[in-house]
């Protein structure tokens, strides 16, 4: 029982970080119907940037989150204009292939720069933990969770309260109407993609403190992120966050009892979703997306 609760706690902490990674995926899907397979490799890219900031410049990853987000935002906007905007026909399918190519391109570039050996951002508090009610909570995981929640909070605030946020939501829910009201869908898409990539990298910066990574790690990660958006319902950020928490808990608990099969639990959930609710938890009603 104790172990079970402990698994749930760790699962929620990790789920928060996954939620940040996956919410960017959902946002991008919602705005432009692009399934960004490169989301996971951008997480790893963020991990490497934080790793470099830490080992070379001795900047704490949690401080590096902000500059990394800004740089990766610009990177994302660039990727949008270079590779995604030109896809006019059959975007839903082609974008999967194009973003996959981008993913392996980035993977290759990371391999060139950092080699393929495993790295880890080993901060001074990386091995610390503290006790709450008999549970050993690792410090980094708590920090990572808190940072993820903070960023998600900012993102939600931006989406709810600002002009840009309204435009992003409008473009998601009814692109034609948004265009009629003067929203430049292209610009909004570029910004949305930039935000998606920068949240991925921000999550990556803290992810690299928890786990070891190499350029290849994005394969495992993208499987997890995609499972999350399938469960949450494509294009729903709220769904993605809730799904990340659910899956984080399930995977952590499975990990405690059967460590080898933890990743399988993600896909097991996908099968259940397919059987009972193909549109996911928060699938947007059909007419809203047309």
């Amino acid at each position: 029982m104790h172990l079970l609760i402990y698994g749930c706690i760790l699962g929620i902490l990790l789920g928060g970080v996954y939620g940040l990674m996956a919410s960017g995926l959902a946002l991008v899907w919602g705005i432009m119907r692009v399934l960004n397979i490169a989301q996971a490799v951008c997480v790893i890219l963020g991990s490497y940037l934080a790793f470099t900031a830490f080992t070379v410049l001795h900047v704490d990853p949690m401080l590096a989150v902000l500059p990394i987000s800004v740089v990766m935002f610009v990177f994302g906007v660039g990727i949008y204009y270079a590779f995604l905007r030109p896809i006019r026909r059959d975007r839903e399918s082609l974008s999967i292939l194009v973003t996959y190519a981008i993913a392996i391109g980035i993977e290759g570039a990371l391999g060139l720069i950092y080699t393929t050996s495993l790295q880890h951002t080993g901060t001074s508090y990386a091995t610390q933990s503290f006790e709450v009610g008999g549970f050993q909570i690792p410090t980094v995981e708590l920090y990572a969770f808190l940072i993820s929640v903070a960023i998600l909070g900012l993102l939600a605030l931006m989406l709810q309260r600002t002009r840009l946020g309204r435009a992003l939501r409008a473009a998601t829910q009814n692109p034609t109407a948004a265009r009629l009201l003067g929203v430049d869908i292209d610009r909004v898409s570029a910004v949305g993609f930039g935000i998606g990539i920068s949240t991925a990298a921000a999550a990556g910066a803290v992810y690299g403190m928890i786990y070891s990574f190499n350029p290849n790690s994005h394969y495992d990660l993208i499987g997890i992120l995609l499972a999350i958006v399938v469960l949450g319902g494509f294009g729903s950020m709220r769904g993605a966050i809730v799904a990340a928490l659910i899956l984080g808990v399930i995977a952590s608990v499975v990990f405690i009892y059967w460590p080898l099969w933890a990743n399988l639990s993600f896909f097991g959930v996908v099968v259940v979703v397919l059987l009972f609710r193909p549109q996911g938890l928060w699938g947007v009603p059909n007419w809203a997306t047309q």
């Binding site: 999967i96 499987g223 995609l226 958006v229 990743n263 896909f267 996908v270 397919l274």
Partner: peptide, 23 residues
């Protein structure tokens, strides 16, 4: 089972098949 969904969802789920087989 898979063909209950289409387009991008199908792509994602079919990728899941690959990952599951690998596991």
């Amino acid at each position: 089972l898979l063909l209950r969904v289409r387009a991008a969802t199908f792509a994602v789920v079919s990728l899941a098949v690959l990952f599951v087989a690998e596991i």
